[in-house]
């Protein structure tokens, strides 16, 4: 490694990072004192790390190797000491996944087609749309990918379910507390921008190869829009309506369940729709870490240099996307009714 990356430039870089963090905090809080404090915090933290006997010291070693070593040590530490804990997390997810997958695969195909048609009709109240969804799904079967599609659907449903369970409460929290929002928003940015493989590597070590890691990757990638849109939806609920409920003595809970969430529902539904779409985008990546389903079809096409197989896998994914999107959009549109404040 060239000397260019070692010594005092490293220190300077750390200082610049500290400054950048300070400026970021300053922008979000418009509070000089806390900005300076965070900058100092970063500096002190890095200096303190430098004294911890890791593989290399900052001062004459290189920063990249330090981080790498520390991360690997940490993951190994987790695997060794908290393996049971991670098993305990993955176990119920896996069980749900397996049950769902088995149910979908064992169910007679006409029943599944009928169920999807019924769901589409309930969401849209339009027969034509229901019929269209049934046709799209049947088409996947004609491609010979029915079983794979059912596997993908079950991973999707579980991932989206977890995203909803996590995303809506966090979105509510963000809407209510500016502090929470300031902390969580950068995390969401990170979740959406950091390449999936970066967190898939430790995830594989912790959860093993297969569906659970795929679910985790999907949840990390697909939850942020739901959080953001829940937050936005609740913040944009007409202030006078919320004030009215307060004036009538509603508790915070009554306000949330009776006014804020119902009125934010169109936005929340939009968030769920986004989550579903982003979850589908993760199907192929999921297959790379051992998740089964349509993604695997595409992956095999890639590995065997079989463009045709890649295409039919792609078509199946698009068909699934259409079905999921139309149904959730229609449900969202129906939620929109009577939600706008009249003046």
């Amino acid at each position: 490694m060239s000397d260019l990356w070692l010594g005092w430039p490293t220190q300077l870089t750390i200082f610049a990072v500290a400054l950048a963090v300070g400026i970021m905090v300053d922008r979000s809080t418009s509070n000089r004192a806390s900005a300076v404090a965070s900058a100092l915090g970063v500096l002190v933290l890095t200096q303190a790390l430098a004294f911890v006997p890791l593989d290399t010291l900052f001062f004459d070693g290189d920063l990249g190797r330090t981080i790498r070593g520390a991360t690997n040590d940490f993951v190994r530490f987790l695997v060794v000491n908290y393996g049971d804990f991670f098993d305990a997390i993955s176990e119920p997810v896996l069980r749900t996944l397996v049950t769902l997958e088995r149910t979908l695969r064992d169910a007679p195909v006409p029943l599944v087609l009928f169920a999807v048609g019924a769901l589409a009709y309930l969401a849209s109240r339009r027969l034509a749309m229901a019929a269209g969804m049934v046709v799209a799904l049947y088409f996947i079967g004609t491609l010979g990918l029915w079983e794979q599609a059912m596997q993908t659907v079950s991973i999707m449903l579980v991932s989206v379910g977890i995203s909803i369970i996590l995303g809506i409460p966090v979105g509510v929290l963000n809407a209510r507390s500016n502090t929470a929002r300031k902390i969580i928003n950068p995390v969401l940015d990170l979740m959406q921008t950091i390449p999936s493989f970066v967190y898939l590597i430790p995830a594989l070590m912790l959860f093993g190869l297969g569906n659970v890691s795929a679910v985790l990757a999907t949840v990390i990638y697909a939850t942020p829009p739901l959080i953001r849109l829940t937050d936005l939806g609740i913040r944009y609920v007409d202030a006078e309506v919320v004030e009215a409920s307060r004036a009538f003595g509603a508790t915070r809970r009554q306000m949330l369940t009776g006014v804020q969430i119902p009125l934010a529902l169109p936005s929340i539904m939009q968030g769920i729709n986004q989550t579903v779409m982003m979850a589908l985008a993760m199907v192929v990546i999921g297959s790379m870490i051992g998740a089964r389903g349509v993604g695997q079809t595409v992956l095999i096409g890639l590995q065997r240099n079989d463009a045709g197989q890649g295409l039919i896998g792609g078509i199946a994914i698009v068909m699934l996307a259409i079905v999921f999107d139309r149904i959730s959009q229609a449900a969202g549109a129906r939620a929109q009714k009577h939600r706008q404040v009249a003046h």
């Binding site: 007409d238 006078e240 309506v241 004030e243 009215a244 409920s245 307060r246 004036a247 009538f248 003595g249 509603a250 508790t251 009776g258 006014v259 119902p262 009125l263 009577h338 939600r339 706008q340 404040v341 009249a342 003046h343």
Partner: peptide
């Protein structure tokens, strides 16, 4: 106490009505 007070003692009418559209 405040919630109870608002429920029983005082009610309010708003300029832009503050009705719940849903």
């Amino acid at each position: 106490q405040l919630e109870r007070f608002r429920r029983t003692k005082m009610s309010m009418v708003f300029q832009r009505f503050g009705l719940m559209p849903h």
